[in-house]
Design a protein around this nucleic acid. Structure first.
Lengths: 207, 207
DNA sequence: TTGTGTATGTTATAATTTTAACAAGTAGGT
DNA sequence: ACCTACTTGTTAAAATTATAACATACACAA
């Protein structure tokens, strides 16, 4: 597990892209693929692909290519497919509920154990996931839970501080505000506005 | 507009972070800030910040720092705050609706003109945004619309192809599958699973 | 079984991005 | 009006990341 620290950040961010592409290829019946083909599929240079793969070992065969299914297995294992991460959703509004319904992705990296909302009347169950009032989070926080999905729209920083205090080390952040975290906590921003801003910029630049 | 092409990709991706942080600072009553302070706020090195800012001109004053409000204005303009981008949502399910309700971000880069869904019975209006059946997209596609938010869960690639054919050049992709696009089209992935996978990896590496 | 074509994995090179160092210029006090 | 302390913007160096080039080894055909 330690050696993985050597994997470049940039490579790490491409792993999920490969995994998704490979899943699609497998569904299409493709059993074997070469870096050149995969390149056209994901818009990443073949050399980059081979290099990225090589960090996980010699996954391919010279003169042949890569076996799709075994690649998927390897990436699955590598990316936490065998982990059983406990996840919580904080904020059971529209978006939070939509995510709870996205159970498609449960059991891939782990599962959503429960959700919290500041409004006590939201407590109950949504798509079979229990929702608790936020002020019960001390008791209800799942043991060993390190990752939270944040979909609240008020008292954001306070809630973040609370989560970190309770052991959260990774946050998927759907809020629209800036949040401040200590260096040992990772945040993945999901900000549609920012993405559109980048898109506007890029599509302008192309013209 | 052309010179902006020189702005490094990496810098571009930080602009939205700065903008959000500055908005928060302004709300907190901060009028003036130095790169060192801002650094602690956003976890980016002061030098990197100064360098990033310098691509937009000499925004600060030596021995003083930066004026928060004028920074915000500059970033706003830079990031499309003055653009009037027309956006569409494709897929009016749970997630699509949640995003329509997120009107907070309307008028920041533009506005959501309408939405489409493959199920004709979903047609109507959601949070004052008209929803049309997908097969009417040829007629109802807004003039000059280049950016689409994709929240569908079936016929994904086909829909993507259709959108591109109709002039879409940027996609915010909430689907869970890999999609294939030509090089002139940009895709911003919003994949919670991938994010959690990265988080799992990072939080493991830290330990 | 042998030979050839082909695709990997790696080594070397180029490009990008980050960080450090510093010169120049302003604020704010005296 | 000057001086000092401080922070920017920039130049130069380091680190990271991407690309190109190639040697090695395997598949596949004869």
């Amino acid at each position: 597990m330690d050696k993985k620290t050597n994997v470049p950040k940039a490579t790490l961010q491409r792993f999920p892209i490969y995994l998704k592409a490979l899943r699609k290829l497998e569904k299409l019946g493709v059993q074997r693929i070469m870096s050149r083909e995969l390149s056209e599929f994901v818009n990443i240079e073949p050399t980059t692909i081979r290099r990225d793969f090589s960090f996980l070992g010699s996954l391919g065969k010279q003169g042949y290519g890569y076996d799709v299914t075994s690649l998927i297995e390897i990436f699955d294992g590598e990316l936490g497919g065998n982990f059983h991460e406990k996840l919580i959703i904080v904020g059971a509004g529209n978006l939070g509920k939509a995510l709870m319904n996205y159970n498609r992705w449960n059991h891939v990296v782990g599962e959503i154990v429960c959700a919290f909302d500041i409004a006590p009347e939201k407590a109950g169950e949504v798509y079979q996931i229990p929702v608790y009032p936020l002020d019960q989070i001390h008791e209800k926080m799942p043991e060993g839970c390190r990752i939270a999905i944040l979909t609240i729209s008020s008292d954001i920083q306070e809630t973040v501080d609370l989560l970190i205090e309770l052991g959260i080390r990774g946050i998927v952040d759907f809020t629209h505000e800036h949040i401040q975290v200590p260096k040992e906590v990772s945040v993945k921003q999901v900000d549609v506005v920012s993405m559109i801003q980048e898109l506007v910029f890029e599509t302008n630049a192309i013209k």
